[in-house]
Amino acid sequence: MPLDSLHLDAVSVVTNIYRVAQGLRNKMEREVLSTHGLSWTSFSILYDLWIWESVETKKLAELTAVSKATISNITKTLERKEFCYRKTDIRDRRITYVTITDKGKEIMEELYPQFHKGEIEIVSSLTVEEQKNVSEILRRVIRENKF
């Protein structure tokens, strides 16, 4: 591909989205999640369970954008920590639900305020209006690409 045919604005946007996403993930894992032995994905799963209480593994895979096999491995680890438990649907044994435990809820109630503080820090150089604009634009990219 000839260099003069590159869409540099598109390259810049995608590269910057990637760098922000990686930076956010690394910062949160290092400064917040590591104290509880959680990865970004395990926190994302626990967060979804905290919000919804019980979620089918297939839906968890969609929400966190990982494979069902990854969900299975991470939920096994979260089960060992007693943050959740898995239960097979009695009507259809192919369906498994993951449910947060009281211990999982306690961890999230302790962890989320620290996590939210990190979210605020990451965008602190932007005005509220800029934050709304960035959010709106990113939602449009997500929607149009069905992410």
Results as ranks from 00 to 15, higher is better:
residue 145 N to R: 13
residue 62 E to C: 13
residue 24 L to S: 07
residue 68 K to T: 04
residue 76 K to S: 15
residue 39 S to L: 05
residue 117 K to W: 02
residue 90 I to R: 14
residue 72 S to N: 12
residue 125 S to R: 10
residue 116 H to R: 10
residue 48 D to A: 05
residue 114 Q to T: 01
residue 130 E to L: 04
residue 128 V to Q: 09
residue 71 I to V: 13
residue 86 R to T: 12
residue 74 I to F: 03
residue 9 D to G: 07
residue 43 F to D: 02
residue 53 E to H: 09
residue 98 V to S: 04
residue 112 Y to V: 05
residue 129 E to R: 09
residue 114 Q to D: 01
residue 29 E to R: 03
residue 130 E to G: 00
residue 124 S to D: 10
residue 98 V to M: 05
residue 105 K to R: 14
residue 31 E to Q: 08
residue 80 R to L: 14
residue 19 R to W: 10
residue 146 K to Y: 10
residue 50 W to H: 11
residue 75 T to A: 08
residue 65 A to D: 14
residue 112 Y to F: 08
residue 116 H to A: 09
residue 80 R to Q: 14
residue 61 A to P: 08
residue 10 A to I: 08
residue 59 K to I: 04
residue 48 D to S: 06
residue 38 L to K: 00
residue 51 I to E: 14
residue 12 S to N: 08
residue 11 V to N: 07
residue 131 Q to L: 03
residue 52 W to G: 04
residue 5 S to C: 11
residue 113 P to G: 07
residue 36 H to I: 02
residue 66 V to D: 04
residue 67 S to V: 06
residue 53 E to C: 06
residue 7 H to E: 13
residue 29 E to N: 06
residue 61 A to S: 15
residue 119 E to Y: 03
residue 141 V to N: 11
residue 106 E to Y: 04
residue 138 L to T: 13
residue 125 S to G: 09
residue 133 N to C: 09
residue 63 L to F: 15
residue 26 N to H: 15
residue 118 G to W: 00
residue 10 A to R: 07
residue 45 I to Y: 00
residue 116 H to W: 08
residue 110 E to V: 00
residue 58 K to H: 14
residue 145 N to H: 14
residue 128 V to N: 10
residue 83 F to V: 00
residue 87 K to S: 12
residue 80 R to Y: 09
residue 38 L to G: 01
residue 7 H to N: 15
residue 71 I to L: 05
residue 145 N to A: 13
residue 21 A to C: 07
residue 39 S to R: 04
residue 111 L to T: 00
residue 107 I to N: 01
residue 73 N to T: 12
residue 49 L to Y: 02
residue 127 T to S: 15
residue 101 T to R: 01
residue 2 P to R: 11
residue 116 H to N: 11
residue 133 N to V: 12
residue 71 I to H: 03
residue 122 I to R: 03
residue 2 P to L: 11
residue 23 G to K: 03
residue 38 L to F: 06
residue 55 V to F: 05
residue 82 E to I: 11
residue 111 L to C: 05
residue 10 A to E: 08
residue 113 P to A: 07
residue 6 L to W: 07
residue 91 R to N: 15
residue 103 K to H: 15
residue 104 G to C: 07
residue 48 D to K: 00
residue 20 V to D: 09
residue 83 F to C: 01
residue 57 T to H: 08
residue 83 F to E: 01
residue 132 K to W: 06
residue 76 K to M: 11
residue 27 K to N: 04
residue 32 V to Y: 00
residue 20 V to C: 13
residue 26 N to Y: 13
residue 18 Y to L: 09
residue 105 K to P: 02
residue 9 D to V: 06
residue 100 I to Q: 03
